[in-house]
């Protein structure tokens, strides 16, 4: 612990990142450039999220790290260990007990509260990127609020698949102004973006930070005759029987056997502890 400054980053760096975070909160959905640092992990493993978490943590915080909804996968375990070692903060797997939650690809099922901060790891912060390769042009489009191109992408989806087939990283318009990529969360999680918690987004390689202040409107883009649909697999969780959670499909044998389980491991474990049972466990 004493080998590192608290939470790994030096204090001027944390101050620089906090300024970016404050600016991001002041202009919801706007991508604030920041001087992203080299972190002791490869790009794509959450360097942006880790820097935001490091700048946000205080010694009294309790940290939870989620990777695709789970607390026990590689990315989650290594980042949790990293902060245990360089910040000495308490960690937890319980959503309700955490004060700072770093996440990759999911929003927890348990509703967040006003004293929590949710930090997203973002691979590509620019929602217009795959439609318009020029950064100069996309910045201009954001500045002038020219978001017609985003609907061209949704149009293409419907033309090709009969419905809006974008199922993750579904673009939202924040507070009626900036169009934002909510990171690759499933579109099932989009309605949860309007939350009492502070939500921060860090993209390390792309050097951008953006934010959703509490209770900020985040409208998923859609067409009048093809409204937004936060789709979900039509099954109950095989372990806890939940019918309101986002499910992972797990292949269980070579004969096409499969089961659907909650992607949020903490939510599923909590329900099982409370006595809920799904089909698999009851048998």
């Amino acid at each position: 612990m004493s080998d590192y400054n608290f939470a790994y980053l030096d204090e001027p760096t944390k101050r620089m990142i906090r300024r970016a975070i404050l600016k991001g909160l002041a202009i919801p959905g706007y991508q604030v450039p920041f001087a992203s640092r080299e972190m002791p992990m490869p790009y794509g493993w959450g360097t942006g999220g880790v820097q935001v978490t490091a700048a946000t943590l205080t010694p009294s915080d309790t940290l939870k790290v989620i990777d695709q909804g789970a607390d026990d996968t590689t990315n989650a375990v290594s980042i949790r260990r990293f902060f245990q070692r360089v910040a000495g903060v308490a960690t937890t797997e319980r959503t309700a007990e955490a004060t700072v939650i770093q996440t990759r690809h999911r929003v927890p099922e348990t509703p967040l509260s006003a004293d929590q901060i949710l930090v997203y790891q973002v691979p590509i912060p620019e929602p217009l990127r795959f439609l318009e390769p020029s950064e100069v042009e996309t910045r201009k489009m954001h500045a002038l609020e020219e978001y017609g191109l985003m609907h061209v992408k949704l149009y293409e989806d419907i033309a090709r698949h009969g419905e809006i087939a974008t199922s993750y990283a579904y673009p939202v318009q924040v507070a009626g102004r900036y169009v934002m990529d909510p990171s690759p969360i499933p579109k099932f999680d989009n309605p949860k973006l309007e939350s009492p918690a502070i939500q921060l987004f860090g993209a390390g390689r792309e050097q951008r930070i953006y934010a959703l202040p509490p209770y900020t409107r985040a409208a998923s883009l859609d067409f009048e005759d093809h409204p937004f649909d936060p789709s979900r697999a039509d099954h109950p969780c095989a372990l806890c029987g939940a019918t309101d959670s986002y499910l992972d499909e797990v292949i269980v044998d070579d004969e096409g056997g499969r089961m659907f389980v909650c992607s949020d491991t903490d939510y599923c474990a909590g329900r099982r502890a409370a006595g809920h049972r799904g089909t698999e466990v009851a048998a």
């Binding site: 017609g148 191109l149 609907h151 061209v152 149009y155 293409e156 033309a159 090709r160 093809h226």
Partner: peptide
């Protein structure tokens, strides 16, 4: 836009000026 279908190409200006009805 070479990566976008003919319909999308024609519709882009409409969507750019606020059309939000796919049909």
């Amino acid at each position: 836009r070479m990566g976008v279908s003919a319909g999308g190409n024609v519709g882009e200006r409409l969507m750019g000026t606020g059309a939000r009805h796919y049909g």
